[in-house]
């Protein structure tokens, strides 16, 4: 039998995976596909969507008014007819208050992180890409903020600005800018020295164009992953500020604030007192698990 040898130019043949040509997807399509196939991430997304939807539609789905007090109905246990999750120390329906509380608490988790991600990634990418003096100025300022523990910094800033929803949002945003800047800077410094950035410079592309086209595409996944892991922390910090009296003021429903006011009733109705804490726990755990899922999904490795 004659042996036939065919010489194939390996560099010209397409790689076939699993015997069939692969369906082409963009990077984001592929990442979304991986995320959708992860049960843990999808579970977290469902829970969080439910919370957000409940918070948005609170006036239409809650059984009671969140602010009307009733001395007679104080601290009813969980499962009381008409009061599914019992009542608080002023006789207000816990379920209603928890749903309304989600409005402020989730806002406290998402908005400061969104703002901090925007500013932090711009600062970090600029510092990382240009290096030298620019890097030194931005990163040393970030280091000053870094010197304080985040809780202390948030307390200090909120204390200085005064209580109130807007001031808490501002102080939380400021607290989260330095860590995001640090992550963005580290990722950018790593990308900047890669040959493909040098190749882009060699084509005569301007710095902003290279940053958008080459740097952002590669640093967005570590930044987004890190930022999403901070959402839980932001909710906890906002709750902490409310607990200390630096955040929202009493009649308002907020998980941290509810935890604070129910604290005095912990021996009379321990389950009721713990409920806001459980909500904080569920929300922050979900955000952290989702962050893990995002990291896996956004990993480019085939």
């Amino acid at each position: 039998m004659a042996r036939r040898t065919t010489y194939v130019d390996e560099t010209l043949t397409p790689q076939i995976a699993g015997g069939r040509t692969r369906i082409q997807r963009t990077y984001w399509q592929a990442a979304r596909r991986r995320l959708v196939r992860d049960p843990v991430s999808m579970g977290c997304i469902s829970i969080l969507s439910l919370m957000v939807a409940a918070a948005i539609f609170a006036p239409w789905i809650t059984p009671h008014d969140p602010y009307v007090t009733s001395i007679v109905n104080r601290l009813k246990p969980v499962g009381t007819p008409g009061y599914l999750l019992g009542t608080d120390e002023l006789g207000r329906d816990m379920l209603t208050r928890l749903i309304y509380g989600g409005r402020i608490s989730l806002l406290m988790g998402l908005l400061p992180i969104a703002v901090a991600t925007l500013f932090g990634s711009v600062l970090g990418v600029v510092a990382g890409y240009f290096g030298g003096k620019t890097n030194m100025i931005i990163m040393r300022v970030a280091d000053v903020f870094f010197a304080f523990p985040s809780v202390l910094l948030a307390v200090g800033l909120a204390g200085a600005l005064g209580a109130g929803v807007v001031n808490v949002l501002i102080s939380l945003s400021l607290v989260f800018i330095p860590p995001i800047t640090r992550v963005a800077e580290a990722a950018t410094t790593q990308i900047r020295t890669q040959d493909f950035v040098e190749a882009a410079r060699a084509t005569g592309a301007s710095a902003p164009r290279i940053i958008i086209g080459h740097v952002m595409t590669n640093v967005s996944s570590p930044i987004l992953t890190y930022a999403s892991s901070l959402i839980g922390l932001s909710i906890v910090l906002a709750s902490g500020l409310s607990f200390l009296g630096l955040g929202m003021s009493p009649p308002l429903a907020d998980w941290g604030l509810m935890l604070n006011t129910l604290r005095q009733s912990i021996y009379l109705a321990p389950v009721n007192a713990v409920l806001p804490g459980v909500m904080i726990l569920i929300a922050s755990v979900c955000f952290n698990l989702l962050s893990d899922g995002l990291r896996t999904a956004m990993d480019v490795k085939p």
Partner: peptide, 29 residues
């Protein structure tokens, strides 16, 4: 004048398709 690098992997952006990578300089120009 253009440059071709040694490391074929490091010199291509892992998040760009080949058409995007090749066309990047043209768009920049």
């Amino acid at each position: 004048v253009q440059l071709v690098f040694q490391d074929s992997y490091a010199s291509l952006n892992p998040r760009h398709t080949m058409a995007e990578e090749v066309g990047f300089g043209l768009i920049a120009q």
